[in-house]
Amino acid sequence: MSLFRATSVSVRYGQLRALENVDIALEPGVVHGVIGPNGAGKSTFVDALSGRTRLTSGNVEFDGADITHRSVRWRRKAGISRSFQKTSVFNSMTVSQQLELVAHRNHERDLDGIVDALSLGPVMDRVCSEVAYGTQRSVDLAMALIGNPRVVLLDEPCAGLVHDESVNMLQHVRDLCRERGVGALLVEHDVDGVFRTCDVITVLNLGTVLCHGTPDEVRKDDAVIKAYLGSAA
């Protein structure tokens, strides 16, 4: 039994098929990458799994129980958290205020651990809108990691970061997930980063699963190469 399993997930907006019968399974301590060209449905997928978007069909299981219709809040309390592609922080609060706000709700006992792991110590007393963009991305990620979630759904944590920052960020994600036994879904635009970081990769294209496997298997897959070349052309 997987920790977190989505089966035949479909999302349609009217006639538009954003996702069509997508399956995925997350295991503890495993970083599962999702890549795909623009418009593949990656962000919709995170929204669907995190409860932000309603599924047209399919179901989501957590710990063997069906949670398809559970609210966002229920999922967070049960241990499923997410980060946002478009940085979602509390701009007027200090970094420490907002981390404490989230920690308070989710009974985090080791906030310092997260703060240290993401090197947020020096900016704790700064107002969030005043810290660097890359740091805001870290705050966003920190809020998803607070409270020992068992599943984290990460929507392009490296969006907008320069290469070095991006390498660091993915390093953090992998270390934290392994240490804490978290099942992570990592949606990323940066394909190289995903190949470096993830244990398993699912490739989406036009809302369907194109291929699935270890980084090596995916790298050799003809369909994947064609899809990426196609979108680049």
């Binding site: 967070r76 709700r105 989710n106 809020m143 607070i146």
Partner: peptide
């Protein structure tokens, strides 16, 4: 109070509050 901080969070970013487990 804590209530005030929660209100501030909700005013500023309702969605993040929900995804942080707050009503």
């Amino acid at each position: 109070s804590r209530f005030g901080v929660i209100l501030e969070g909700t005013r500023e970013n309702t969605e993040r509050m929900r995804f942080s487990g707050y009503n």
